[in-house]
Each structure stands twice: as C-alpha cells, then as structure tokens.
Computed example of a mutant assay.
Amino acid sequence: MSYDKFLLFGDSITQFSNTLQNGFALQPALQDLYVRKLDIINRGFSGYSSEHARVILPKILESEANIKLMTIFFGTNDSFDHINDIQTVELPRYKENIDYLITLAKSKDIKSIVVGPSLHDPRMCLEFFAEGGRQYTKDPNNNQRLYEYSEAAKEVAKKHNVPFIDLWNIFRETKGWTKEELFEVSIAKDNWSIGEDGLKTFLSDGIHFTGESYKILYNEIIKRIDENYPELKSDNLSINFSDWKDINPKDLSSIFK
C-alpha cells in the first residue's frame, strides 16, 4: 500500500505550490499527472534557506520511504541582501549546500532536479514586507544577486550531471529582456526599461510565483523528467492496483495483481 514518491523540496515557493494561483497550482497538477503512480509530497518551508535544508533533508529521508524523484529549489532566501541575520547564505556556502543536497539524494538512489532562483521586484517586495510589519529602506534583493546564485546552482548541478531548471533566464527570455535591463531594477530608480508592470507576470508580491510562473515550472519539470529520467515519465509507470476491468469478480484479491 506504500506508493513511490515524488518529493518537492524547497522554500515558500514550494510550500505555496499547492495553492491555486489564477486557476493553476503546481502540486495538484503533478499529482493529477501521477495519480496512482507516484505520491507528490510537499516539503516546502517558508523563509528557509539551503542552510536549513541541509539540516532537514536527512530527517525527511529517514521518515519518508520510497522517494524516487525530487526537486531541490533553494536560493531565493539565501540571496537576500543581508536584510536579517537568519536567511542570507553567502555564495560559496550556498554552493556547498546544494552540492550536499544532491549528494545526499544520490546516496539514497533518488533522482533529483535542481531549480534555480528566479527574478525579483523590490517595490512589490517592500510592500509585501510592510504588510507583515517589516520595514526596509533598501532593495531586499536584486536580480544580479539572484542571477549569481542561479548560476552557482547550475554549476553544481552540472558537476553532478543532474538536470537544472534555469528559471531566471527562462522568465527573462519569455519577455525578451536583457540581463542588463533586469540588473537595473531597483527602488533607487524611477523608471525601469522593462516597465513598471513587467515582473507582475511572474511575481505576485515581488518574490512568490503567479500561476503563470508555476505553469512554466511545471512544464520545465516534466521536460527534465522526459529528457533525463524517462523511466519516471508518467506514461512509463504502471498504475497501482489492477484496472477495474481486469479485476476477477470471483477473486477480488486480483486487485493486487
């Protein structure tokens, strides 16, 4: 009765992937695709960084059996520009942490997909933080820092020969922006060349994803599975328990065959 599992491991963007966003939610979409084949397990932790992740993942793997596939999606909080003393993880340590998470997954024979951090809108972010009583006078993060962390995660994924989802560049290319245009985004500048509403396509509050972003992430996850782990494609997995038409009415134990 124990299903094989697909683990979504990350921060708040993973935690919130079960919430409907403009008619779409990532985790239910994956569960629908893998129904009766893999259970989709959400282990997203709002506000957590890769430093916290390396403490948590061993405990998760102790308590959850039969994990076959997982996403590793950290970096958004790690790259915050020192706005508090708990979230920021310096770039070299961030790389070490991602390396550790991939290595641990491999040691348990779990296939992994690394997801890099995406884009940032400081004005929306500051409004979001202010609603929670947090006041800042500088950009909490910036797109250049996020790019550097994304590139670092990509480098580690390449070292381990595991697939990487480059959301930073995928989102950028979707809108036709240049890196330099995104680097300019700051509360210190009155006008951004990408437009005041440009990042709202992808970000609901300057950090977290819209339904459009989750759709993109969903499609990229499926693409990476198809290309790198075809044995774990939904079409290549058998359903758990017999199809109802194959059940022998005189022997209901045939359900399990």
Rank of each mutant, 00 (worst) to 15 (best):
Y218H: 02
Y34M: 00
K154G: 02
T19W: 05
F209I: 04
H160S: 02
Y229C: 02
N143Y: 11
L61Y: 12
S17P: 12
T14H: 05
A105V: 02
D39F: 06
S238W: 00
D226P: 10
N236R: 06
Y229I: 04
N236F: 05
N142Y: 09
I247S: 04
D39C: 01
K68N: 07
T103M: 03
G75H: 06
H52D: 02
L57A: 06
W192R: 06
F183Q: 15
E181G: 15
K106L: 11
D109C: 03
K159S: 01
M70G: 09
S238N: 07
K138Q: 13
T88N: 12
L217T: 09
N228M: 04
P92V: 08
K111H: 09
R93L: 04
S242E: 12
E231D: 00
K138C: 12
T210M: 03
R172M: 15
S50R: 03
S12R: 13
P230A: 00
I83A: 11
I207L: 14
L101S: 07
F74T: 00
I72F: 07
E64M: 13
Y34L: 02
L146G: 00
G211D: 01
G206Q: 07
L232S: 03
L101M: 03
T88M: 15
H160F: 06
I67W: 05
E220P: 05
H120W: 08
A153M: 02
G23K: 07
D39P: 01
N22W: 11
E90N: 04
G133E: 07
V114I: 15
H208Q: 02
I110N: 01
L146Q: 02
A65Y: 13
L203M: 15
K175N: 15
S118P: 15
K108N: 07
F241C: 04
L69S: 09
N18L: 12
R224K: 15
E184S: 13
G133Q: 10
A130K: 11
R54C: 04
P140S: 09
L252C: 06
V89T: 09
P140G: 07
